[in-house]
Amino acid sequence: MKLAKRLFDFYLDASIHVAFAVLALMEVTAILLNITIDGHLKFFVFFGTLTAYNFVKYGVEADKYILVANRYHKNIQFVSLIALVIASYSAFYLNINEWYLMLGLLFLTGLYAVPFLPRTKNLRNLAGLKIFIVALVWAGITVVLPSFEKTTVIPWDVAIETIQRILLVLVLLVPFEIRDLKYDDATLKTLPQRFGVHKTLVFGGFSAIILYGLTFLKEDLTPLDAIAKGILFLILGHIMLYTKKEESKYYASFWVEAIPIFWWISILLVEIGI
């Protein structure tokens, strides 16, 4: 049992879980926009996400990421290096425009973690910007990148899907913002710090309503899309109703981050039924 718990904690701490979540959202995009995603791009996104998230979490402090002292962080470092190698190999199969788009997203991710000017804060620490930077990057990777240069997609529908993905990530980040309320520096001015837990949950619920409503503005709205967004709306509504200031250790880090994976699986099941 202890071994299983250690492996599970490593699965979360090494960002493998969040990498699966990002890949799941990319697969959702492929289904809803009826496009095919190249296998190399999937590998690049999965392993690139793993590497990038570990850099954001541990890379800012060299003694946690480069000059590693303990075995646990060495193992995370080793997994990150392997992931970086695989992502770099897969990157060679991306076309030049995909490279430009990814470089822009990677640059934004870098600014999120590393100060961009001497004696300045990184974007992660600029008041109120953190969740919007994360949402923008996730939407870019999971919607814009896979649909980029696909001639079969309707640009308006891609724009709607991108906005919906931004809103989805903002809602999913609410439990994390509430969880970290007691740890975050007051200068961060996160949503719970500014408006309190209740109003932050109301913001999440209102965002979920907008997300679902935008579905019906698509030019090529399929029954699968409407059902899929309906399922997502119910899941997000449940999360906003039952998220509390004090939650279990794995509530946000596993269950909330698993929502994209569960959503993808539910869409596959609905697709089989239809």
Rank of each mutant, 00 (worst) to 15 (best):
M1I: 08
K2N: 10
K5G: 03
K5R: 15
L7Q: 10
L7M: 13
F8K: 05
L12H: 02
L12V: 12
D13G: 04
V18H: 02
V18W: 04
V22A: 07
L23Y: 10
A24R: 09
A24E: 04
L25K: 02
E27T: 11
E27G: 06
G39T: 04
H40P: 00
F44R: 10
F46A: 10
G48F: 04
V56K: 06
K57L: 03
V60K: 13
Y65I: 02
V68Y: 01
R71D: 09
I76E: 05
Q77M: 07
L81S: 10
L84H: 03
L84S: 13
I86P: 07
S88I: 13
S88H: 05
Y89I: 15
S90E: 12
S90T: 14
A91F: 14
I96Q: 14
G104K: 06
A113P: 06
V114W: 08
P115H: 09
P115A: 08
L117P: 05
L117W: 15
L117A: 15
P118L: 14
R119I: 12
R119V: 13
R119M: 15
N122L: 08
L123E: 03
L123N: 01
N125T: 10
L126Q: 15
L126N: 11
L129S: 00
I131S: 07
I131F: 01
F132G: 00
W138N: 00
W138T: 00
W138F: 03
I141Q: 01
V143K: 01
L145P: 08
E149L: 12
W156S: 11
D157E: 05
D157K: 11
V158W: 05
A159F: 12
I160C: 05
E161I: 11
I166R: 05
L167W: 03
V169H: 01
L170Y: 02
L170A: 03
L173R: 01
L173I: 13
V174N: 00
P175T: 00
F176H: 03
E177Q: 03
E177R: 00
I178D: 02
D185A: 14
T187A: 13
K189I: 02
T190L: 03
R194Y: 02
H198F: 11
T200D: 01
F206S: 11
L211F: 07
T215F: 00
K218R: 13
L224K: 01
I227A: 12
A228W: 03
G230Y: 07
L232T: 02
F233L: 09
I235A: 11
L236Y: 06
T243Y: 01
T243D: 00
K245Q: 08
K249V: 12
K249N: 13
Y250H: 12
A252V: 12
F254I: 01
E257G: 01
I261Q: 04
I261G: 04
W264C: 12
S266V: 01
I267F: 05
L268H: 08
E271M: 11
